[in-house]
Computed example of a mutant assay.
Amino acid sequence: MNFELEPPKHGGDLEAFLRSENLDPNSADRWLDLSSACNREPWPIPESFLENSAKLWYELPDAFALQQAANEYFGLAPLAIGAGTQQFIEILPALLIEHAKSKKVWVPAVGYQEHGFSWRKWGYDVREYQDVSELLINEWDIAVVISPNNPSGQYLTSAQSEQLKVLLETSERYLVLDEAFLDATPEASWLNGPLPRSCFVLRSVGKFFGLAGARVGFMFGDQAFAASTKSLVGPWPVATPALHLVTQALKDRDWQAESLASLTERHAYFEANMVPKLNTLFDSQDMMHTPLFYTWQLEQGQALKAVHALHSVGIHIRLGQGWVRLSLPAGHEMQRLNHGLVRLLQGHQLKELG
């Protein structure tokens, strides 16, 4: 085990960025922060909750109502509810340490880096793959798949899903399927059909619902792992106020439908008005997107220049190794983004980027 590894960096880090640049952290409200991939039009916290939630801070958490709401929303009872999908990413190496045939695990080279980090901490031999197709032709005992992948935007195809299910059903392998970004495209979820007994599916309310601060996630899998999972998660992983809020969010079908419609409308506007400007700014049209974010692949030096240029007009985005990512702005944020891009493309910053 190695618990001294340096943890990965994440988006949604505007205040940390401001501190690192010796800028006033209190100026965060003056920036347009598109660095995370969460819904910029999140589920609205009800006024009634804000006015009457004091008693929730005095009660120990009881997840029964959320269990029922999750069962109805996902169509399947979760194996466990935890402090975001991150908690399950942390415990899965311990959960499988005595079940898998070996300590070899395959994770995507591009994707949420906490997956590989968690397995490495527990002493697993972590190997990276570039494309899911590699899992279909190589031997492995544990693998992690992210669909849709953040930041690449790639989904599992129907053919890949069927092939992976066959592998799980005909061999002693374990698959961790991270579907944290799938709520806006639920038709692609493995939860829609019989789940292989050696598969664990992770879902989150931090992305589509935009409730990242609630720290609530769900893990689905074989009930044979229920006792071990409960032991590793602990008795009260989610605070009482978060349990109540997320229960209401999962039941709010009207908002869910309205949010899907809003995402469609915002994408149409973004692609027509922002994407051409961003293609020019990044000097790249190598772009993929999901309902919640857009990612451009570009040379690292160009990526750094583009991020610095956007910072000069108060826009913060996510910088990776050879890619940049923007969350889809809220409707009311579009004009602010457009204004910043116009300033850059009309000014000297464009010359520097060229």
Rank of each mutant, 00 (worst) to 15 (best):
F181R: 13
L243V: 13
S48K: 14
G12C: 05
H311R: 13
I146P: 01
E333F: 06
L195C: 09
V105A: 06
R19I: 08
S189K: 09
A268M: 04
G234H: 12
V238Y: 10
G320I: 14
F282H: 07
A159V: 12
L60S: 13
V275P: 03
V205K: 11
T185Y: 03
L96S: 01
Q113F: 02
S284H: 11
Y155R: 12
L32V: 08
V145M: 13
Y58N: 03
P186H: 07
A100S: 13
P241V: 09
E47Y: 11
G301D: 07
D62W: 03
A330M: 01
S189R: 08
G210D: 01
F220D: 00
F117M: 06
E187V: 08
R318Q: 07
L344E: 01
F270I: 01
L60A: 10
K103D: 05
V342S: 09
G221T: 01
E41T: 15
F209I: 00
W57G: 09
A65N: 10
Y174F: 15
T157M: 07
L202P: 08
S171G: 06
L5A: 01
L135K: 06
F3K: 06
E128A: 10
L281R: 07
L5E: 01
F74R: 00
A249M: 04
D62H: 13
F88H: 04
P237C: 05
A226M: 06
W122F: 13
L195T: 07
L23Q: 13
G12H: 11
M219L: 14
D33M: 14
A212L: 05
L23F: 08
A239M: 11
R266D: 06
G193R: 04
L96V: 05
L195W: 14
F218K: 00
L281Y: 13
F117K: 09
L182I: 15
H348A: 11
